[in-house]
C-alpha cells in the first residue's frame, strides 16, 4: 500500500452512548468516540457532512453527522433502522467497537455563503440530524448570522428527535422555534399541522436569507410553493440529498445523479443546482 492515506480504512471507534430517540424505537442516537487520540485531534467536520459507519462483517452505511463541530470529543449519529447494517447497529451495545470513515461530502456553507444571512431551517421527521448540527453550530457562532427560524415537524410528539434540546431552544430568545406535529395528540399543546402549512403561516422573509430544508421529498415538494409565493428563489434554498453509497469518495458510481456524485459533490446542493439534474435521487 502506498504511503498516502487509505480512504477505505475506517477509524476505530467505540459506541459511547446509545439513546432511543423515538417512541417507535426505530431511531437511536449513537454517541461515538474515536479510539485513537491522534484521530480525535485530526477529525474536523462541517455541519451537513456525513460519515460511513463501518460494522466489520456487516458493511458500511452513510449517515449524516448529527453533532456540531463545536461539540468536541465525540460524534453523534441518529440512525433509522432500515436495512442490514442499521439493524445490526441497533442491536449493538455501549462499548462495542465500530469504524468511522470520514468526514465525507461538502456540508452546509456555514462559514461562507450562509454567514451574515437570516437562516430558516425547515426539517421533517428524522431528517433533522445534520440540521441539528447546523443549528448548534450557528447558535455557538450566533453573531455570524441574522435571525434564525426553525420549523420542525414530526408525525407525533413521540417521533420528534432531540426533545430536550428542542425545549431548550424554544426557551431562547435568539432563535424562533416552530415545532409541529401532524395531528392533535393528547398532552401536546404546541403547533399542529404539516410542515408546509406551518412554513406558509410563519412566512419567513426571503430578504438576505437562506433556507436549509431536509425532509421527505413530499414535504420538500409542498414546502416550496408557499415559500416561492413570498419571493424565495431556488438559489436561496439548500437541500441535502441522499442516495445509496459505497465508496463515499466519488468513484464507485452508486450515488451518481447525472454528472454529480452525491457523496463527493454533495450531499448539500442548492435547489437551483438540483433543478438542473436528472431526477435520480
Amino acid at each position: 500500500m502506498s504511503s498516502t492515506k487509505n480512504p477505505y480504512r475506517p477509524y476505530p471507534a467505540r459506541l459511547d452512548n446509545i439513546k432511543v430517540e423515538t417512541e417507535d424505537g426505530n431511531l437511536k442516537t449513537f454517541r461515538i468516540v474515536l479510539e485513537d487520540k491522534a484521530d480525535r485531534e485530526a477529525w474536523k467536520h462541517t455541519a451537513g457532512q456525513f460519515a460511513m459507519l463501518s460494522l466489520a462483517g456487516k458493511g458500511e452505511i452513510p449517515i449524516g453527522i448529527a453533532s456540531s463541530p463545536t461539540e468536541e470529543g465525540h460524534l453523534l449519529f441518529t440512525v433509522n433502522r432500515a436495512g442490514v447494517v442499521t439493524t445490526a447497529l441497533h442491536n449493538m451495545k455501549e462499548g462495542d467497537r465500530i469504524g468511522v470513515r470520514g468526514p465525507l461530502g461538502n456540508g452546509f456553507p456555514v462559514d461562507t455563503e450562509l454567514k451574515g444571512k437570516n437562516i430558516v431551517i425547515i426539517a421533517g421527521g428524522f431528517a433533522f440530524t445534520t440540521l441539528r448540527a447546523t443549528l448548534i453550530y450557528m447558535l455557538e457562532h450566533r453573531q455570524d448570522y441574522g435571525k434564525i427560524t426553525v420549523i420542525y415537524g414530526a408525525r407525533t410528539p413521540g417521533m420528534l428527535l432531540y426533545r430536550d434540546e428542542l425545549e431548550k431552544w424554544q426557551a431562547r430568545d435568539d432563535v424562533d422555534m416552530h415545532v409541529t406535529i401532524d395531528r392533535e395528540a393528547p398532552g401536546w399543546d404546541g403547533l399542529v399541522g404539516f410542515v408546509p402549512t406551518i412554513a406558509g403561516q410563519v412566512a419567513p422573509s426571503p430578504d438576505n436569507a437562506a433556507a436549509l430544508i431536509c425532509g421527505p421529498p413530499i414535504m420538500i415538494k409542498f414546502t416550496m410553493p408557499p415559500l416561492e409565493e413570498i419571493g424565495w428563489t431556488d438559489d436561496q434554498v439548500y437541500l441535502s440529498l441522499e442516495n445509496r453509497m459505497k465508496c463515499g469518495i466519488g468513484i464507485c458510481g452508486h450515488c451518481s445523479v447525472g454528472p454529480v456524485y452525491v457523496c463527493h459533490d454533495g450531499p448539500v446542493f442548492t435547489r437551483s443546482q438540483v433543478q438542473k439534474l436528472p431526477i435520480e435521487y
Binding site: Y8, A56, G57, K58, G59, C247, C252, G253, H254
Partner: peptide, 15 residues
Amino acid sequence: CYCFDIQDETLHGKG
C-alpha cells in the same frame, strides 16, 4: 466501466 460494490464476507471469525 469502473463502478464497484463493497461487501463484507466472514467465515469462522475471519472477515
